[in-house]
Amino acid sequence: MNTSERPKASLRPSTFARRAVLRPGLVPVAVVLGMWALLPSLDHLPVYKLPHLAQVASELWHLAVTGAIFNALGDSLSRLAIAFVIGATLGVAVGVAVALSRALNDFLMPLIAFFNAIAGIAWIPLAIVWFGFGSGPVLFVIANNVFFIVLYNTLLGAERIPPVMYDAVRTLGGDRRRTIVREVLVPGAMVGVLGGLRTGLAFAWRALVAVEMIAASNGLGFMSIQASRVFDGSTVVSVILVIGTVWVLMDRLLLRPVEALTVRRWGMLGGADL
């Protein structure tokens, strides 16, 4: 083609082209989709092992039209929300209460570190014993997981507050219960709390899928493992895609805005990880 025309064209690409078509990040996505479309026919893979792109697309369409995927997603997300709120509320409340007393803090820290080390998922069998199959064990395991992560991070955040802050507030006549909590502990530990909430939500989401596979009778995880048992590869792959998409959306719409807001409000960078 005429080379003299090219720079002119690339100088003013249309907004649509710049946003969607010319984005280099879409190239590998297209390559992967292309390979996926070609691979099963080249390699004579059985369909249940690697369903065709078109099959997965039609399965997704089917799941969306019948509403099955939205029902499963709704079950999963409502469990996540309930368990997360329970775990996080208790974690922050206990964390703030414990952080007020150095002795209690020193006493509980090893225990909390230990319970944090018992992977949340490892509670699944015991949760089934206590609550039977269904929503019970899912809620318990996730709330438990979130609780210890948030508690641990709240205490770590409180530990990082320089003691001089407490002394300053006390010197100025602040009383232990109200002023210290409101003026020192809560804002000071906020870095840890928010880091804990973020880590907690990520771990909760991972645990959710696992618990639903093992202990639930509905939800995304259950849908996927059930499909795998009857060699329904298209549903398995559909659920994988939905799980990825949902987390990308949660990250973009929930975690990043909150992070950006808090960085501006409290001038903080990152939080404590596990």
Partner: peptide, 25 residues
């Protein structure tokens, strides 16, 4: 820069969600 969107998407897929597919394989 090219690969990051794809990698971000795969990061978002919980590893345990792959297990049913891995079991099929």
């Amino acid at each position: 820069r090219m690969m990051f969107p794809l990698i971000n998407f795969f990061t978002a897929i919980v590893e345990l969600a792959w297990i049913p597919l891995f079991v099929l394989w």
